[in-house]
């Protein structure tokens, strides 16, 4: 398929996991993709695989100057931007009772503040037909033990799309949330091991974790005109985990 022919996309957290799978898929569908991440080595490996229609910019979503450099690079090479996949996110466990201010700040800096400025700074390059996709999480709906900060930050991300659909009224730019459940990224596979993956999978009606390519397929749907009447929606790609 080539639903994204000629489109320019930015994917934050694009060097690995869901972001990299989306970059692969967007390029297959005809897009030109800028992947943004903090680790040069991971970015280099990704672009070597992605080929000539990918560029990398090194930076952090919680650093405004880095984001300015990202969009300056997009403007210089492509002039405008069609798709933003605000996907960079972070989360680590800390049970209630042990939560520190730094833990909350780190989580919200990346997941909430980082998402807000990733989108705000992209707007000058975007126009009618543009699509913004925010990575939420099934944890934003269900809660996840010891993941207070992460779950709350993802609930906040889901809410951002509601307000922004109103703020973007009349611009022709759509904004939706893609909420993955347990996804078998390289990082997750390493952290969970075989047994852990089985345990996570068993919690879902589909009885398995997602392949990152399955999340990328939903991202491609939201990026394309196939979802042209969708804004402020949440698409849960979670094997039913948070739906029942």
């Amino acid at each position: 398929m080539s639903r994204l022919n000629g489109k320019t996309a930015v994917i934050t957290g694009g060097a690995t996991g869901i972001g990299l799978a989306a970059a692969r898929r967007f390029i297959e569908e005809g897009a030109f993709v800028f992947i943004y991440g903090r680790r040069q080595q991971a970015l280099d490996a990704a672009v070597a695989e992605l080929g000539p229609n990918a560029r990398t910019v090194k930076g952090s979503v919680s650093d405004e100057a880095d984001l300015d450099r990202l969009y300056a690079a997009v403007k210089a090479e492509r002039g405008s931007l069609d798709i933003v996949f605000a996907n960079a996110g972070a989360g680590s466990p800390l049970p209630l009772g042990q939560i520190t201010a730094k833990h909350i700040d780190d989580t919200f800096d990346t997941n909430v503040k980082g998402t807000i400025f990733t989108v705000q700074k992209a707007l000058p390059l975007m126009g009618p037909g543009g699509s913004i996709i925010l990575t939420g999480s099934s944890a934003g709906t269900t809660g996840a033990p010891a993941f207070t900060a992460y779950s709350a930050s993802k609930a906040a991300v889901r809410n951002l799309a509601r307000t922004w659909a109103e703020d973007l009224k009349g611009t022709g730019i759509r904004v939706n949330v893609l909420s993955p459940g347990a996804t078998a990224t390289e990082l997750a596979k390493e952290a969970l091991g075989e047994e852990g993956q089985k345990a996570y999978g068993a919690m879902t009606p589909l009885e398995r974790m997602a392949d990152p390519a399955e999340i990328a397929a939903a991202a491609a749907f939201l990026a394309s005109d196939d979802s042209s009447f969708m804004t402020a929606s949440e698409v849960a790609v979670d094997g039913g985990l948070a739906q029942l």
Partner: peptide, 19 residues
Amino acid sequence: ESSYITGIDLAVDGGWAQV
């Protein structure tokens, strides 16, 4: 394309019921 999606309610409503 939606192989990992089950049990959801997909709103295609221009944001009507979402805001």
